[in-house]
Write a protein that binds this DNA or RNA. Structure first.
Lengths: 175, 175
DNA sequence: CTAGCTTATGCAACAAGTTGCATTTGATAT
DNA sequence: ATATCAAATGCAACTTGTTGCATAAGCTAG
């Protein structure tokens, strides 16, 4: 249901096509949720057939038609229901943990390479976060209530990533 | 593939039945990986038909038969291959982030309840971690190489959870 | 001029994970 | 006496996410 919820929120703010949403995902939503275009198109169609969205087709002569989705009353209600009910704890499933679990069969060189690459990914993520922070939250004093929540999630993302980096570096130092 | 890898590692250490593995999951493996019994039984059978495991049926008169799985050479090789190839970055998909993203439609009371419950879950997890630490890693000086890796994962789990707790408490203070 | 990117949508097959139900026997609790 | 739990396995249907492919037009770079 979480993907649906994310779609309901984005479309409730501003109606749009699957492609539009993909762009929003790429721009900044990506640190909140990630999904492929196939997932989006399929889910949007299902939501329409469930009555949570309406769809208006804008014919374009030179390009494929644009299908603009809008949230219905039923959609809003579904969103509010989801917001009201508590989330289930998400299961632990971290592939890197699995490799650590197999430590004694994990060749040292492969381990070094894996950790180095992983560290690079984390650093890149921190760079992305920093860019988002500069663009959207340059002045923390002047945060509107609407911006406070995304700011919180950004800060959490940053701190978790920093924790990961520290840990990876410690493990690498130890060999 | 990660579930397979986890199963290959556990069974390579000691052959056993699906039920056995479930127990190991409950005992301590759970902070590395979680899976339901249906997943296990199905995956074990597939791995057997793929030649990664052999299966010996121990008839029991008073209980359902026990099917003991053992890792084959092909299984070990699959494990080593998996260990050697780099992991793909895992996608961001945190349902709580989605709720934050919908901040303006998230009623304050529901938010408070959610965060309080979430905080409780985190604290419980810390308690579990502490228990594991006492039982398995009471003397960090005397860590054998074999125990060093699970100790690392445990420490990471602790630190990430602590980061989460700090963040949740900050958000709650703010209202 | 051709190769590849962007816009915009989609199908089909598969892999992974969840939910609900079913079986059989012994032990334990009320 | 009846109910429920634990041991041990499994099927079927479903949801969610991934991978690979297809279409069709315009635009840009070498």
């Amino acid at each position: 249901m979480s993907l649906r919820a994310v779609l309901l929120i984005t479309l409730q703010r501003e109606p749009g096509t699957g492609y539009d949403i993909l762009q929003r995902f790429k721009e900044g939503l990506a640190h909140v949720w990630q999904a492929s275009h196939q997932q989006l198109y399929r889910e949007l169609e299902r939501m329409r057939s469930d009555g949570q969205l309406t769809c208006e087709t804008l014919p374009q002569t030179e390009r494929p038609d644009r299908k603009i989705y809008r949230v219905t009353e039923a959609g809003l209600q579904a969103l509010d229901t989801w917001l009201a009910e508590p989330l289930a704890a998400s299961p632990v499933r971290q592939p890197l943990f699995a490799k650590f679990f197999a430590w004694e069969r994990w060749p040292e060189q492969a381990r070094r390479e894996e950790l180095t690459a992983f560290r690079e990914q984390l650093k890149e993520r921190l760079t992305t976060y920093a860019a988002i922070e500069r663009e959207w939250f340059s002045d923390p004093q002047a945060l509107t209530p609407a911006k406070r929540a995304p700011w919180h999630t950004l800060r959490l993302g940053q701190r978790l990533t920093e924790t990961w980096v520290e840990w990876v570096e410690e493990v690498m130092e130890e060999g």
